[in-house]
Design a protein around this nucleic acid. Structure first.
Length: 887
DNA sequence: ACTGTCACG
DNA sequence: ACGTACGTGACAGTT
């Protein structure tokens, strides 16, 4: 078997990758989409071909200013966009780090270098693949030289392959003839003039008959059509010049030895660090665990990371830590997995230790928490990451006075997808650390600690180390940005409220949930049968693809919208088709029932713990606006709008002797808007304390309050919602099912009615554009990078975000304040009632029957007074024996 | 792992 | 001309 070499056209592939992928930057702000796309293609090819040698060719283009101007004027080669320009050197650096052979030589085009190398390699007996986005290279194809052209298709890149016969099948000419064809037809992007009046079709025809332009000229009388012949005669010199220009050189003088192009160590430490820095996460798993953990940070080498075992030694460590904690902060991280597995500590200049729990009578989990308790009680300043997850193991008296650096980092930039140790080390310490997934995947922590001692020591020590070292930096930045009060008085105290909610959980009637599920199953089976009957065949109703075929091909329903992959079968589309075919209504009903069954009836059941309660998780660092999010399960999207779904709320019940109190803010976002905008009429409207949608309708449609029709009210309500979402006539039109023009009219009337709102929203967009972020009443920031986009759609999104985030975010801030106060008050008053859920503008409390009245008052009081606005905050409280009744 | 759909505020 | 309402999470199907 002959050896194989892959040659890649660097610029061409990078360029292609750039336009194929959406703009992407790492946290330093470096553009990385083209590099990522290039590497994806590179890896795909390496995986497929496993070549022995690999070289990437770049042309050293230093176009003069004039040249570029000329090219742009001609509309041929557009100047390289700024976002791509920087990625050229970046890619080269990455490739160098990967120790991949790069060839670039001034004065030659990449084409010519590739041609030269390909021909040389072929002559020396290699099998050759040339990868480029440029079809010009097809002229190089032979039986041993394969030209590969990546294509971006939906669902990834596919690569077209061309040997001699493939070129002939596709173009009807041989690769050599391809040059002549191009000489005739020309190529604007390569500045090949060609012969005027001859396009692809004619060129192909002529070359298929005569095989070369020389031969065509030799038999010029036989060339047809007449127009082409005339033009060829008149442009003879240009034709030959074009052929020269179109011919890729295969005899460049390049100093290159194929043997040097053996890429042996692409997965090395340097390369790993580059990938990590560029945040090319999807590619990191290519670096085997060994490589990843070998990539030690510099700090790690300076600071000794050590695992400590044994009670006595651990005691000494705690003594030392206690001493230090009087003067300086201590970083810690408690490693848990249902039990305490260890504790990482970092303090002083360079002390970083892991106390590992052991079997038998050595150092136990209890010893560790006791030691930590002693430390926390003695010191005053501590830093950790993900405090809420550790609280359950911290003795109760010492749970405060701890900074959660992950939460601080979230406030500084809420757009990140995660705030793990490696993210924070990267952003604030300029350190490259491996992530948990990179070192040990998703195996058990206990195994990891036991089997990979050295790696786990480093990994967990880094948590404590990162928390400690990043702490002064992030806290200072919070102060600089005026967010220290948000952090200290809202976010950190909220940690404890959320922790309490998770601990308490919510009781679920398991039997009733089961019955509810069974009821759904009966309905689902019935509908399934009916649908199969009506469709005339059985198919998977849950598959949008199969459903689309049935509805739009078999039953010939008019297909309205399309998605990327086919027909849209969304409820929005189906609702409009309901009158056409009875099957559509059945499908909608089926969808509703299966959703309820899978997500709620079956979905919730698996989360019921031994105590009969669901202990969902609440997340504080997910939503960009500052809202809380809920998972495992999501308790913030339990059905309510449709009666059948709403029924499920009956299975959420209070403990024996308790009742539910459910309190929700009435239109908190609109009230926040009234306050923030200061619009006098909106404020006045709220002072009336009447139906705001009706008032708005009355003002907007110039109709007396009493005479507002339900249709007018509905429209006004939609406009109110639209305003909060960041108004757009298109979106409002969709929401109301009216034309864009009508929607625009509504919006204009609205802004005429409430001019202060208009000014306020305009100011928000301006602020977003000049500052790069918008803020809530409490100083929470949301950066909006989309506002600088040159893409209309992206920028418009940014504008809507600029209008929505301060409103949604301020409402989130307010309810967080209420939660903290309610939770603290319940505890301070030694009541048995507890806060158990937050659903954005609603709090659910499990109140002891004897305390119900007191708690109702307290709840209403604290929620209403959580913020002092220009309009009052109204709160409705309801009581009930289950969540259904309490709402 | 991504897409479509749908549950909530 | 472009083509979406803001913020989330879960499930099923497809790649």
């Amino acid at each position: 078997m002959s050896k194989k070499i892959v040659l890649i056209d660097g610029h061409s592939i990078l360029n292609r990758a750039f336009y194929a992928l959406p703009v992407l930057t790492n946290s330093e702000g470096l553009y990385t989409n083209a590099v990522l796309g290039f590497l994806n293609i590179l890896f795909k090819i390496l995986d497929e071909e496993k070549p022995d040698y690999l070289t990437i060719a770049f042309d050293v283009h230093q176009p003069t200013f004039r040249h570029e101007m000329y090219a742009e004027y001609k509309g041929t080669r557009k100047a390289m966009p700024e976002e791509l320009r920087g990625q050229v050197p970046l890619l080269k650096e990455v490739l160098k780090a990967m120790k991949i052979s790069i060839l670039e030589k001034g004065g030659y085009e990449a084409d010519d270098i590739l041609g030269t190398l390909a021909v040389r390699a072929e002559r020396e007996g290699y099998e050759v693949s040339v990868v480029s986005g440029d079809r010009d290279l097809l002229q190089l194809a032979t039986d041993t030289i394969k030209i590969r052209i990546p294509k971006t298709k939906k669902g990834g890149t596919e690569i077209e392959n061309y040997n001699t016969k493939d070129v002939m099948e596709t173009y009807g000419v041989t690769p050599k003839e391809f040059i002549d064809m191009k000489a005739l037809m020309g190529d604007a992007s390569d500045n090949i003039p060609g012969v005027p009046g001859i396009g692809e079709k004619t060129a192909a025809k002529i070359i298929m008959s005569f095989s070369s332009i020389e031969n065509a000229y030799a038999h010029i009388d036989e060339v047809t059509p007449n127009k082409a012949r005339e033009s060829m005669i008149n442009n003879r010199e240009q034709a030959y010049l074009s052929k020269t220009l179109a011919t890729i050189k295969t005899d460049c003088e390049v100093d290159y030895r194929i043997e040097d192009a053996d890429y042996q160590e692409i997965y090395n430490e340097d390369a790993y660090n580059y990938f990590k820095r560029l945040e090319l996460k999807s590619l990191l798993n290519r670096f085997s665990g060994v490589n990843a953990s070998n990539a030690k940070s510099k700090k790690e080498e300076e600071t000794k990371f050590e695992t400590i075992t044994g009670k006595k030694k651990a005691g000494e460590i705690f003594d030392a830590a206690v001493k230090v904690s009087g003067s300086g902060p201590v970083g810690f991280y408690l490693i848990t997995e249902g039990e305490v597995l260890g504790l990482a500590l970092s303090f002083g200049e360079d002390t970083c230790l892991l106390l590992a729990a052991e079997e038998a009578e050595a150092l136990s989990g209890q010893d560790i928490t006791a030691g930590l308790g002693r430390l926390l009680a003695a010191g005053k300043s501590f830093a950790t990451l993900h405090l809420k997850e550790q609280l359950v193991f911290l003795p109760e008296e010492v749970r405060e006075g701890i900074d959660d650096i992950a939460i601080a980092a979230y406030l500084l930039n809420p757009l990140q997808s995660s705030y793990e140790c490696d993210d924070i080390a990267r952003d604030y310490l300029k350190l490259t650390l491996p992530s948990q997934a990179e070192i040990f995947g998703k195996g058990s922590l206990k195994e990891f600690l036991k089997l990979k001692k050295e790696e786990s020591t480093a990994f967990f020590c880094n948590y404590a180390y990162t928390a400690l070292k990043a702490m002064p930096l992030v806290l200072e930045e919070l102060r600089l940005k005026g967010m220290d009060s948000l952090y200290n008085t809202i976010e950190m105290p909220l940690v404890y409220a959320l922790y309490d909610m998770e601990q308490r959980g919510i009781k679920v009637n398991k039997e009733e949930l089961k019955e509810y599920g069974d009821k759904l199953t009966v309905g689902i089976n019935r509908l399934e049968k009916e649908i199969y009957e009506m469709a005339g065949e059985e198919f998977n109703i849950n598959s949008p693809k199969q459903l689309g075929v049935i509805l739009f091909e078999k039953l010939h329903l008019p297909n309205g919208k399309k998605t990327k992959t086919g027909y849209s079968t969304s409820a929005e589309v189906l609702e409009k088709l309901q009158s056409e075919e009875p099957i559509v209504g059945k499908i909608l009903e089926y969808r509703q029932l299966t959703k309820l069954k899978s997500t709620y009836a079956d979905g919730l059941a698996v989360y019921i713990s031994n105590d009969g309660r669901i202990h969902g998780k609440f997340h504080q660092t997910i939503a960009a606006t500052g809202r809380i999010s809920s998972t495992e399960p999501n308790l913030q999207n339990i059905p309510i709008r449709m009666e059948l779904g709403r029924e499920i709320r009956k299975v959420f019940i209070p403990e024996e002797g308790y009742v539910f109190l459910d309190a929700d803010y009435s239109q908190i976002e609109l009230r926040v808007l009234a306050h923030m905008s200061g619009d006098e009429r909106l404020i006045e409207a709220y002072k009336e304390n009447q139906d705001i949608h009706r008032i708005t309708a009355s003002l907007v449609f110039h109709t007396p309050f009493e005479e507002v029709t339900s249709e007018q009210r509905r429209a006004a309500k939609a406009v109110n919602f639209g305003i909060v979402y960041g108004i757009s006539s298109f979106g409002l039109g969709q929401g109301l099912n009216i034309s864009r023009k009508e929607a625009e009219d509504y919006i204009n009337r609205y802004f005429d009615t409430y001019p202060g709102v208009k000014t306020f929203l305009d100011e928000l967009v301006n602020e977003g554009k000049t500052e790069g972020y918008v803020t809530t009443l409490y100083g929470r920031r949301r950066p909006i990078p989309e506002l600088t986009s040159s893409n209309f759609m992206t920028r418009s999104f940014g504008e809507r975000v600029a209008m929505n985030s301060p409103i949604q975010g301020t409402a989130a801030d307010i309810i967080k304040i209420a939660m903290i106060r309610v939770n603290e008050k319940l505890k301070a008053l030694k009541l048995r009632s507890r806060l158990i859920l937050q659903i954005h503008d609603e709090l659910l409390i499990e109140a002891h029957k004897e305390e119900a009245e007191e708690v109702r008052k307290l709840l209403k009081e604290e929620m209403q007074n959580a913020a002092e606005l220009l309009v009052t905050l109204e709160v409705d409280v309801n009581e009930g024996p289950n969540w259904y009744e309490a709402k």
